[in-house]
Amino acid sequence: MANVIRRRGIKARVGRGVLYAVLITAALFYALPLIVMLMTSFKPLSEITAGSLLSLPQDPTLAPWAKAWGEACTGMRCEGVGGYFWNSFAIVIPAVLISTAIGALNGYALTKWRFKGSELVFALMLFGCFIPFQVVLLPMAQTLGWLGLSSSRSGLVLVHVVFGIAFTTLFFRNFYVGIPDELVSAAKLDGAGFFRIFWRILLPVSAPIIVVSIIWQFTQIWNDFLFGVAFSGHSTQPVTVALNNLVNTSTGVSEYNVNMAAAMIAALPTLLVYVLAGKYFVRGLTAGSVKG
């Protein structure tokens, strides 16, 4: 990959050495919090109070992880964050799938079945991307009340779907704009209708943008705290809210190792999704601009 010809003088080499030193320092600086979190989560509490924040665990243990998962107190209950972890999945999976499906249909309709005012509809939908969450908290709470969905998982799914549609529509609309209209014309002449064209012609080539939409939505909804804390009940809290409660529960000493382990548990799924599918994410985002 080294397809650059570089200067070779001594001055150039020294300059290059300084450049690398600066970059490595900056990288370490950014990675440090994560490293400290990981190390702390494997230390027994005694090692934390006595030793340095940066020292390696002398006596690594999984106990803090086990406690964070199954025993730690989040507010009144002491059942760990495990149950809330599954709560999060129960909210995230349907919300991601539904918002992606609706976004795909919206994008398809807005680009391939243009109607009078479709550009305006799209522009208005884009507003959704810029509305601050806190603005809608009260009206949303009222609406969920009317719908009988207060403090329920379905209610949270609905909120995330509604908020996600703006982004997923944007993704799919921009992707489908790059797909030639003639494909749809050809399918119309071949006798296919609205849904058949979507299902048979467009969807099979949409994999890159579906991946983008899923990763984006998964990360957004998994990491959401505000809607989770505002609209969930005791038993329907997502893991982010549980983590907050765990850390803020002030009985006895602060168990930093348990806190860190719980934070890692809460962060793992999104990290994993990015590590596994990150390259498709980048590919999908650039799919429209580079012709395959």
Binding site: P180, E182, L183, S185, A186, A187, K188, L189, D190, G191, A192, G193, R200, I201, P204, V205
Partner: peptide
């Protein structure tokens, strides 16, 4: 009538072949 109801076929400048098929 809609394109489907007209019994015509068209060959496009870009060919418009269905890429996934």
């Amino acid at each position: 009538r809609t394109p489907a109801e007209r019994d015509i076929a068209m060959v496009f400048q870009s060919y418009a072949l269905y890429p996934s098929m």
